[in-house]
Write a protein that binds this DNA or RNA. Sequence first.
DNA 1: GTTAGCACTCGCCTATTGAGAGTGCTAATT
DNA 2: AATTAGCACTCTCAATAGGCGAGTGCTAAC
Lengths: 337, 337
Amino acid sequence: MLTERRDRLLQFIVDEYVRTAQPVASAAAERRSGLPVSSATIRNEMARLEHEGFIEQPHTSAGRIPSDRGYRYYVEELMRPKEPPDSVKQTIRHQFHQATAETAEWARLAASVLASRLSYGALVTAPHAASSHLRSLQLVSVHEYVALLVVVLRETLVVQQTITLDRPHTQDELTEISARLNSLYAGHSADDIRAMQIEHPSVEAEAIQSVLSLMDAQDGQNLGEPFLEGLRELLREPEFARGETILEILDLLAGANPLEAIPLAQAGEDVTFVIGAEHAEDALRHCSVIVSRYSGPAGLRGAVGVLGPTRMHYPRAVSMVRYMSGVMEELLDAYFR
Amino acid sequence: MLTERRDRLLQFIVDEYVRTAQPVASAAAERRSGLPVSSATIRNEMARLEHEGFIEQPHTSAGRIPSDRGYRYYVEELMRPKEPPDSVKQTIRHQFHQATAETAEWARLAASVLASRLSYGALVTAPHAASSHLRSLQLVSVHEYVALLVVVLRETLVVQQTITLDRPHTQDELTEISARLNSLYAGHSADDIRAMQIEHPSVEAEAIQSVLSLMDAQDGQNLGEPFLEGLRELLREPEFARGETILEILDLLAGANPLEAIPLAQAGEDVTFVIGAEHAEDALRHCSVIVSRYSGPAGLRGAVGVLGPTRMHYPRAVSMVRYMSGVMEELLDAYFR
DNA sequence: GTTAGCACTCGCCTATTGAGAGTGCTAATT
DNA sequence: AATTAGCACTCTCAATAGGCGAGTGCTAAC
């Protein structure tokens, strides 16, 4: 804990630097921070804040910018995130209201809303449960030789795949096959189904093969691939204007899902921050990530995150992430009614 | 038509500039072009090519770079695109073999393959027909209050949406409803269905509403949204390293689909080039686009395109675009068998 | 503990300069 | 008439230097 005055000064420096992207000088703080002291005193305080590692100077004679540690202190002690205004909430709710009722679609939309509201990158994963059970399947005739296999997994997760048939089938035949397979396998996990070892004629065998591979694909991941939006917005930030920096980040994102690497939010905390050099990956040393896990019925979980420069508008970002996370949870709850 | 020697010189300049991204000097041409003349002669020829508008100098004392007109002449007269080697073809076929049999998925995969093979941006639209007819629909129970509506449109196009039910329904009930709606509406267009004006109880009414809005969404577009891949690759090109240029392009792409604006390939031509300033949009003045339309049974059409710097490796790009376009057509044909 | 005053540092901007690259032109050659 | 060697000329790029201004740290007074 710092003194009251140094708290306020650090807060001013962060806010100002976030706003202008320029180092903050003592004279500017004197004029605009509201602190009733002269610039000389502010210089003394700044020297001390720098000595303690909360701020730093890009070069000898420039103003100060927050260090990673300064941001960390700021997000933990100083900032007061304020709720998004009702008008914004309403607009967002409206956007979701118009969307189709599919979990993946919600995630995509959430990412897109986050990105455009905050002008940072947004990462949202669709809700996902650790182990899926077959709830039901249905074959839909697309064409006499082609059917669409729709698989409903236990957790409101619907996946599908087309399969080709070795001879023509009508919808009625497919419906019958679906009913037979459902009565055999509904309610079971992939391992269960494999253990049954039932012999099937060709079409049924192929359908079950596909079901198993779809279920395996689901079970094989912790979080799903995140939907990423807001690259354009990110590029607009001055720290990424050089193109190379963003290239590094893109390369990283192509390989790994940064949300996976983020330590899970501790119990009791609703959002997790990873700031600058706290990232394991060097490419993100000038970035901060804010993540919130959301969870729904039946063990469904997912994550909502923002990726921006360390010079991020934290209060706005965190309240938005928190809000979107809540929206995802509400949608899931409503889905189950 | 230029003289044989100027053709070869221009070809050398384009090839060399594409390779190195550096202006080509007369001395370099003397050494590496294979032309049996001195640099002085080459300088004379260059002066003439410049006078005719095929090449230009970035500044007084630099080598020459191709102008848009030079590239245009190059793609039309000079280059000899060579087929991708069999090994590459095989790899690509293999990638498609593993993919699920969905047209949108093919398009996404095609874009991703193109982008990574060529290291440029790739735009591929899923096959799409001008006017869709309802082939069949099927309601799949997801949850007692939620059903997934799967709509098969005439052209192997499957779309879906979840709908919520006002009271619980079993799969059997839903199957029955599906059968009833199918017998009424299968084979008709959205307009037909609207004209029938049949009154339905609540669930059926909602299903039909959704069907209509899905059909409208399909019919409302000429080409679908393209799948865009390869931003990372594009950013790697030196002409886009500055970040701003790519930003302009992203902004443009967010608003409009450049494939739409491209004049349709003329009959008899298989690919269309738009080079540099030939683009209507100023943001693309340093870009070239190569597009190939593909078409399949039942009036299905789509487009495969590459977006790169004007300094693009045209022979490789055009042969790849051509090949991917062919792959899309084959997939569609095979889908109908 | 605070503040005014001031010397000092350092980045940035604007010449200036020199080297190097590459051309265009001229005159000689084939 | 076409080609070529030679050379002066132009222009970019990189390095260097000087001046300006921003902003600090320190000292001494309050």
